[in-house]
Design a protein around this nucleic acid. Structure first.
Lengths: 161, 161
DNA sequence: AAATAGTTGACCAAAATAGTTGGTTATTGC
DNA sequence: GCAATAACCAACTATTTTGGTCAACTATTT
Protein backbone atom coordinates (compact mmCIF):
# COMPACT_ATOMS: atom_id res chain seq x y z
CA UNK A 1 0.00 0.00 0.00
CA UNK A 2 1.23 3.40 -0.84
CA UNK A 3 -0.14 6.64 0.45
CA UNK A 4 2.42 9.25 -0.52
CA UNK A 5 2.39 12.81 -1.78
CA UNK A 6 0.77 11.59 -4.99
CA UNK A 7 -2.49 10.74 -3.27
CA UNK A 8 -2.19 13.68 -0.90
CA UNK A 9 -1.59 16.09 -3.78
CA UNK A 10 -4.60 14.72 -5.62
CA UNK A 11 -6.93 15.17 -2.67
CA UNK A 12 -5.53 18.60 -1.90
CA UNK A 13 -5.95 19.70 -5.51
CA UNK A 14 -9.50 18.38 -5.69
CA UNK A 15 -10.36 20.20 -2.49
CA UNK A 16 -8.86 23.39 -3.89
CA UNK A 17 -11.01 22.88 -6.97
CA UNK A 18 -14.11 22.48 -4.81
CA UNK A 19 -13.31 25.57 -2.76
CA UNK A 20 -12.68 27.81 -5.76
CA UNK A 21 -15.60 26.58 -7.83
CA UNK A 22 -18.30 29.14 -8.59
CA UNK A 23 -16.05 31.48 -10.57
CA UNK A 24 -15.96 29.12 -13.52
CA UNK A 25 -13.17 26.65 -14.28
CA UNK A 26 -10.03 26.66 -12.12
CA UNK A 27 -6.69 26.53 -13.93
CA UNK A 28 -3.95 24.16 -12.85
CA UNK A 29 -1.61 27.18 -12.72
CA UNK A 30 -3.76 28.65 -9.94
CA UNK A 31 -3.83 25.39 -8.00
CA UNK A 32 -0.09 25.01 -8.48
CA UNK A 33 0.53 28.45 -7.00
CA UNK A 34 -1.89 28.12 -4.10
CA UNK A 35 -0.97 24.59 -3.07
CA UNK A 36 2.72 24.63 -3.97
CA UNK A 37 2.49 21.66 -6.32
CA UNK A 38 4.48 21.54 -9.56
CA UNK A 39 2.28 22.41 -12.55
CA UNK A 40 3.55 19.56 -14.71
CA UNK A 41 2.98 17.10 -11.93
CA UNK A 42 -0.57 18.38 -11.51
CA UNK A 43 -1.13 17.80 -15.22
CA UNK A 44 -0.26 14.14 -14.79
CA UNK A 45 -2.53 13.76 -11.80
CA UNK A 46 -5.46 15.51 -13.49
CA UNK A 47 -5.08 13.32 -16.57
CA UNK A 48 -5.88 10.39 -14.29
CA UNK A 49 -8.64 12.22 -12.45
CA UNK A 50 -10.24 13.05 -15.80
CA UNK A 51 -9.95 9.47 -17.03
CA UNK A 52 -11.78 8.46 -13.85
CA UNK A 53 -14.46 11.06 -14.62
CA UNK A 54 -13.96 12.94 -11.36
CA UNK A 55 -13.27 16.22 -13.20
CA UNK A 56 -14.01 17.71 -16.59
CA UNK A 57 -11.82 20.17 -18.47
CA UNK A 58 -12.41 23.39 -20.38
CA UNK A 59 -9.74 24.40 -22.87
CA UNK A 60 -8.63 27.81 -23.97
CA UNK A 61 -8.35 31.13 -22.14
CA UNK A 62 -10.41 31.23 -18.97
CA UNK A 63 -10.45 27.44 -19.08
CA UNK A 64 -9.41 24.96 -16.44
CA UNK A 65 -10.97 22.11 -14.53
CA UNK A 66 -14.30 21.62 -12.80
CA UNK A 67 -15.68 18.88 -10.61
CA UNK A 68 -17.65 16.41 -12.69
CA UNK A 69 -20.08 15.64 -9.85
CA UNK A 70 -21.49 17.30 -6.79
CA UNK A 71 -19.06 17.87 -3.93
CA UNK A 72 -20.90 15.44 -1.68
CA UNK A 73 -20.69 12.74 -4.36
CA UNK A 74 -16.89 12.70 -4.52
CA UNK A 75 -15.13 10.99 -1.64
CA UNK A 76 -11.47 10.86 -0.70
CA UNK A 77 -11.13 7.15 -1.49
CA UNK A 78 -12.22 7.72 -5.09
CA UNK A 79 -9.62 10.44 -5.56
CA UNK A 80 -6.78 8.34 -4.15
CA UNK A 81 -7.88 5.29 -6.12
CA UNK A 82 -7.82 7.40 -9.29
CA UNK A 83 -4.14 8.37 -8.98
CA UNK A 84 -2.68 5.41 -7.11
CA UNK A 85 -3.54 1.94 -8.25
CA UNK A 86 -5.46 1.49 -5.02
CA UNK A 87 -5.31 1.71 -1.26
CA UNK A 88 -4.52 -1.96 -0.96
CA UNK A 89 -2.47 -3.16 2.01
CA UNK A 90 -1.98 -6.68 0.65
CA UNK A 91 1.06 -7.53 -1.43
CA UNK A 92 -0.88 -9.80 -3.73
CA UNK A 93 -3.69 -7.44 -4.73
CA UNK A 94 -6.26 -9.54 -2.91
CA UNK A 95 -5.53 -12.49 -5.17
CA UNK A 96 -4.17 -14.66 -2.34
CA UNK A 97 -1.07 -15.96 -4.09
CA UNK A 98 1.25 -14.10 -1.73
CA UNK A 99 3.54 -17.09 -1.13
CA UNK A 100 4.35 -19.11 -4.25
CA UNK A 101 0.74 -19.69 -5.26
CA UNK A 102 -0.62 -20.01 -1.74
CA UNK A 103 -1.91 -17.57 0.81
CA UNK A 104 0.64 -16.08 3.20
CA UNK A 105 0.42 -16.17 6.95
CA UNK A 106 -0.89 -12.63 7.33
CA UNK A 107 -3.01 -12.33 4.20
CA UNK A 108 -6.32 -11.85 5.97
CA UNK A 109 -4.90 -9.22 8.29
CA UNK A 110 -3.97 -7.01 5.33
CA UNK A 111 -7.33 -7.61 3.73
CA UNK A 112 -9.03 -6.44 6.90
CA UNK A 113 -6.80 -3.40 7.13
CA UNK A 114 -7.44 -2.49 3.50
CA UNK A 115 -11.19 -2.51 3.91
CA UNK A 116 -10.87 -0.57 7.15
CA UNK A 117 -8.92 2.21 5.44
CA UNK A 118 -11.13 2.19 2.38
CA UNK A 119 -14.28 2.45 4.46
CA UNK A 120 -12.88 5.35 6.44
CA UNK A 121 -11.80 7.33 3.38
CA UNK A 122 -14.93 6.60 1.38
CA UNK A 123 -17.07 8.13 4.09
CA UNK A 124 -15.43 11.52 3.70
CA UNK A 125 -16.66 13.65 0.80
CA UNK A 126 -15.21 16.90 -0.54
CA UNK A 127 -18.27 18.62 0.90
CA UNK A 128 -17.42 17.19 4.33
CA UNK A 129 -13.88 18.50 4.08
CA UNK A 130 -15.04 21.95 2.99
CA UNK A 131 -17.30 22.19 6.01
CA UNK A 132 -14.36 21.76 8.39
CA UNK A 133 -13.17 24.84 10.24
CA UNK A 134 -9.47 24.00 9.88
CA UNK A 135 -9.85 23.62 6.11
CA UNK A 136 -11.68 26.94 5.77
CA UNK A 137 -9.04 28.84 7.72
CA UNK A 138 -6.17 27.35 5.73
CA UNK A 139 -8.02 28.17 2.51
CA UNK A 140 -8.40 31.81 3.58
CA UNK A 141 -4.72 32.08 4.39
CA UNK A 142 -3.82 30.60 1.03
CA UNK A 143 -6.05 33.03 -0.84
CA UNK A 144 -4.32 35.96 0.83
CA UNK A 145 -0.88 34.40 0.32
CA UNK A 146 -1.66 33.77 -3.29
CA UNK A 147 -2.19 37.46 -4.02
CA UNK A 148 1.03 38.39 -2.22
CA UNK A 149 3.14 35.84 -4.07
CA UNK A 150 1.44 36.86 -7.31
CA UNK A 151 2.71 40.42 -6.94
CA UNK A 152 6.12 39.09 -5.97
CA UNK A 153 6.21 36.92 -9.05
CA UNK A 154 5.45 39.96 -11.21
CA UNK A 155 8.40 41.76 -9.65
CA UNK A 156 10.78 38.82 -10.03
CA UNK A 157 9.59 38.38 -13.62
CA UNK A 158 10.69 41.96 -14.40
CA UNK A 159 14.01 41.40 -12.62
CA UNK A 160 14.86 38.28 -14.59
CA UNK A 161 13.66 39.82 -17.89
CA UNK B 1 2.79 6.58 4.62
CA UNK B 2 4.30 3.35 3.53
CA UNK B 3 2.98 -0.09 4.19
CA UNK B 4 4.95 -2.35 1.92
CA UNK B 5 6.55 -5.77 2.16
CA UNK B 6 8.90 -4.43 4.82
CA UNK B 7 6.13 -4.03 7.39
CA UNK B 8 4.31 -7.13 6.13
CA UNK B 9 7.47 -9.23 6.36
CA UNK B 10 8.08 -8.02 9.89
CA UNK B 11 4.59 -8.93 11.08
CA UNK B 12 4.71 -12.27 9.29
CA UNK B 13 8.10 -13.10 10.82
CA UNK B 14 6.97 -12.09 14.32
CA UNK B 15 3.89 -14.24 13.94
CA UNK B 16 6.06 -17.16 12.80
CA UNK B 17 8.19 -16.59 15.87
CA UNK B 18 5.13 -16.68 18.11
CA UNK B 19 3.79 -19.83 16.47
CA UNK B 20 7.08 -21.73 16.75
CA UNK B 21 7.94 -20.63 20.26
CA UNK B 22 8.08 -23.34 22.92
CA UNK B 23 10.94 -25.28 21.32
CA UNK B 24 13.45 -22.64 22.35
CA UNK B 25 14.79 -19.88 20.12
CA UNK B 26 13.79 -19.77 16.44
CA UNK B 27 16.56 -19.15 13.90
CA UNK B 28 16.15 -16.66 11.10
CA UNK B 29 17.12 -19.43 8.68
CA UNK B 30 13.99 -21.35 9.69
CA UNK B 31 11.78 -18.29 9.33
CA UNK B 32 13.39 -17.53 5.98
CA UNK B 33 12.58 -20.99 4.70
CA UNK B 34 9.02 -21.16 6.02
CA UNK B 35 7.96 -17.68 5.04
CA UNK B 36 10.00 -17.26 1.86
CA UNK B 37 11.79 -14.14 3.04
CA UNK B 38 15.47 -13.55 2.23
CA UNK B 39 17.68 -14.34 5.23
CA UNK B 40 19.79 -11.20 4.90
CA UNK B 41 16.70 -9.08 4.69
CA UNK B 42 15.32 -10.72 7.83
CA UNK B 43 18.56 -9.85 9.59
CA UNK B 44 18.00 -6.18 8.88
CA UNK B 45 14.42 -6.32 10.07
CA UNK B 46 15.29 -8.18 13.28
CA UNK B 47 18.04 -5.70 14.07
CA UNK B 48 15.31 -3.07 14.24
CA UNK B 49 12.91 -5.32 16.12
CA UNK B 50 15.62 -5.98 18.68
CA UNK B 51 16.45 -2.28 19.06
CA UNK B 52 12.76 -1.76 19.78
CA UNK B 53 12.90 -4.51 22.38
CA UNK B 54 10.23 -6.62 20.73
CA UNK B 55 12.55 -9.64 20.48
CA UNK B 56 15.69 -10.88 22.23
CA UNK B 57 18.43 -12.90 20.60
CA UNK B 58 20.40 -16.01 21.60
CA UNK B 59 23.71 -16.54 19.87
CA UNK B 60 25.47 -19.74 19.00
CA UNK B 61 24.20 -23.18 17.95
CA UNK B 62 20.57 -23.74 18.84
CA UNK B 63 20.25 -19.97 19.12
CA UNK B 64 17.82 -17.67 17.41
CA UNK B 65 15.22 -15.14 18.41
CA UNK B 66 12.48 -15.12 21.02
CA UNK B 67 9.66 -12.75 21.74
CA UNK B 68 10.69 -10.32 24.44
CA UNK B 69 7.15 -10.02 25.81
CA UNK B 70 4.01 -12.08 26.02
CA UNK B 71 2.16 -12.65 22.75
CA UNK B 72 -0.81 -10.63 23.89
CA UNK B 73 1.45 -7.70 24.75
CA UNK B 74 2.85 -7.28 21.24
CA UNK B 75 0.53 -5.67 18.72
CA UNK B 76 0.81 -5.26 14.98
CA UNK B 77 1.24 -1.49 15.17
CA UNK B 78 4.34 -1.85 17.34
CA UNK B 79 5.92 -4.26 14.87
CA UNK B 80 5.29 -2.01 11.86
CA UNK B 81 6.43 1.06 13.76
CA UNK B 82 9.66 -0.75 14.59
CA UNK B 83 10.68 -1.40 10.98
CA UNK B 84 9.08 1.51 9.16
CA UNK B 85 9.56 4.94 10.58
CA UNK B 86 5.86 4.88 11.41
CA UNK B 87 2.40 4.39 10.00
CA UNK B 88 2.04 8.11 9.40
CA UNK B 89 -0.17 9.30 6.57
CA UNK B 90 0.94 12.94 6.82
CA UNK B 91 3.82 14.20 4.74
CA UNK B 92 5.14 16.40 7.53
CA UNK B 93 5.37 13.81 10.30
CA UNK B 94 2.63 15.52 12.29
CA UNK B 95 4.73 18.69 12.60
CA UNK B 96 2.31 20.80 10.57
CA UNK B 97 4.85 22.50 8.32
CA UNK B 98 3.54 20.77 5.21
CA UNK B 99 3.42 23.92 3.09
CA UNK B 100 6.46 26.19 3.56
CA UNK B 101 6.16 26.43 7.33
CA UNK B 102 2.40 26.41 7.44
CA UNK B 103 -0.20 23.70 7.60
CA UNK B 104 -1.48 22.34 4.28
CA UNK B 105 -5.10 22.16 3.24
CA UNK B 106 -5.54 18.49 4.06
CA UNK B 107 -3.26 18.16 7.08
CA UNK B 108 -5.98 17.23 9.55
CA UNK B 109 -7.45 14.64 7.22
CA UNK B 110 -4.16 12.73 7.16
CA UNK B 111 -3.80 13.07 10.91
CA UNK B 112 -7.25 11.55 11.34
CA UNK B 113 -6.43 8.74 8.95
CA UNK B 114 -3.15 8.01 10.71
CA UNK B 115 -4.78 7.63 14.09
CA UNK B 116 -7.53 5.53 12.54
CA UNK B 117 -5.01 3.08 11.11
CA UNK B 118 -2.89 3.10 14.22
CA UNK B 119 -5.84 2.38 16.45
CA UNK B 120 -6.93 -0.51 14.25
CA UNK B 121 -3.50 -2.12 14.16
CA UNK B 122 -2.74 -1.56 17.82
CA UNK B 123 -5.83 -3.49 18.82
CA UNK B 124 -4.54 -6.67 17.19
CA UNK B 125 -1.97 -8.65 19.16
CA UNK B 126 0.11 -11.61 18.06
CA UNK B 127 -2.04 -13.73 20.36
CA UNK B 128 -5.14 -12.52 18.49
CA UNK B 129 -3.60 -13.46 15.16
CA UNK B 130 -2.57 -16.90 16.41
CA UNK B 131 -6.13 -17.60 17.50
CA UNK B 132 -7.45 -17.07 13.97
CA UNK B 133 -8.46 -20.16 12.05
CA UNK B 134 -7.01 -18.96 8.75
CA UNK B 135 -3.64 -18.33 10.39
CA UNK B 136 -3.53 -21.73 12.02
CA UNK B 137 -4.31 -23.56 8.78
CA UNK B 138 -1.67 -21.63 6.82
CA UNK B 139 0.85 -22.34 9.58
CA UNK B 140 0.13 -26.07 9.38
CA UNK B 141 0.58 -26.08 5.62
CA UNK B 142 3.88 -24.22 5.98
CA UNK B 143 5.20 -26.66 8.58
CA UNK B 144 4.53 -29.57 6.23
CA UNK B 145 6.04 -27.65 3.30
CA UNK B 146 9.04 -26.77 5.38
CA UNK B 147 9.96 -30.38 5.99
CA UNK B 148 9.66 -31.17 2.30
CA UNK B 149 11.80 -28.27 1.22
CA UNK B 150 14.25 -29.06 4.01
CA UNK B 151 14.92 -32.48 2.48
CA UNK B 152 15.18 -30.87 -0.93
CA UNK B 153 17.72 -28.40 0.38
CA UNK B 154 19.82 -31.27 1.74
CA UNK B 155 19.84 -32.86 -1.69
CA UNK B 156 20.72 -29.66 -3.51
CA UNK B 157 23.43 -29.00 -0.90
CA UNK B 158 25.06 -32.29 -1.80
CA UNK B 159 24.71 -31.56 -5.51
CA UNK B 160 26.46 -28.22 -5.27
CA UNK B 161 29.13 -29.57 -2.91
C1' DA C 1 38.83 -26.03 17.42
C1' DA C 2 34.73 -26.12 14.67
C1' DA C 3 30.20 -25.15 13.78
C1' DT C 4 26.37 -22.25 14.54
C1' DA C 5 24.05 -18.06 14.41
C1' DG C 6 23.56 -13.30 15.44
C1' DT C 7 25.75 -8.39 14.24
C1' DT C 8 27.28 -4.85 11.38
C1' DG C 9 28.13 -2.10 7.42
C1' DA C 10 28.88 -1.37 2.74
C1' DC C 11 27.02 -2.07 -1.47
C1' DC C 12 23.62 -2.78 -5.50
C1' DA C 13 19.61 -3.17 -8.86
C1' DA C 14 14.96 -2.31 -9.74
C1' DA C 15 11.01 0.23 -9.03
C1' DA C 16 8.33 4.15 -7.74
C1' DT C 17 8.05 8.97 -6.91
C1' DA C 18 8.45 13.65 -8.08
C1' DG C 19 9.36 16.70 -11.34
C1' DT C 20 11.17 18.68 -16.03
C1' DT C 21 11.22 19.69 -20.83
C1' DG C 22 9.25 20.50 -24.98
C1' DG C 23 6.06 20.19 -27.53
C1' DT C 24 0.61 19.88 -29.63
C1' DT C 25 -3.98 21.02 -29.72
C1' DA C 26 -8.37 23.68 -28.73
C1' DT C 27 -10.60 28.00 -27.51
C1' DT C 28 -11.17 32.78 -26.72
C1' DG C 29 -10.71 37.82 -27.32
C1' DC C 30 -8.85 41.33 -30.10
C1' DG D 1 -6.70 35.86 -38.75
C1' DC D 2 -3.62 36.14 -34.77
C1' DA D 3 -1.95 35.97 -30.37
C1' DA D 4 -2.69 34.47 -25.83
C1' DT D 5 -4.29 30.99 -22.83
C1' DA D 6 -4.54 26.61 -20.92
C1' DA D 7 -5.45 21.77 -21.46
C1' DC D 8 -3.12 17.67 -23.37
C1' DC D 9 0.66 14.51 -24.17
C1' DA D 10 5.09 11.97 -24.27
C1' DA D 11 9.56 11.35 -23.18
C1' DC D 12 13.08 11.99 -20.13
C1' DT D 13 15.64 12.83 -15.53
C1' DA D 14 16.70 12.84 -10.66
C1' DT D 15 15.92 11.15 -6.23
C1' DT D 16 14.28 7.95 -2.90
C1' DT D 17 12.80 3.61 -1.30
C1' DT D 18 12.72 -1.11 -1.54
C1' DG D 19 14.42 -5.52 -1.42
C1' DG D 20 18.33 -7.90 -1.41
C1' DT D 21 23.51 -9.40 -1.51
C1' DC D 22 28.09 -9.87 0.36
C1' DA D 23 31.77 -9.96 3.49
C1' DA D 24 33.72 -9.63 7.76
C1' DC D 25 33.16 -10.14 12.66
C1' DT D 26 31.61 -11.68 17.37
C1' DA D 27 29.57 -14.70 20.72
C1' DT D 28 28.23 -19.33 22.08
C1' DT D 29 27.89 -24.17 22.16
C1' DT D 30 29.59 -28.89 21.39
Amino acid sequence: MRLTTKGRYAVTAMLDLAIHAGNGPVSLADISERQGISLSYLEQLFAKLRRNELVRSVRGPGGGYQLNREQQDIDVAQVIDAVNESVDATGCGHTGNCQDGNICLTHHLWCDLSSQIHEFLSQISLADLMARKDVRSVAERQDRGHNASFEESLISAKVTA
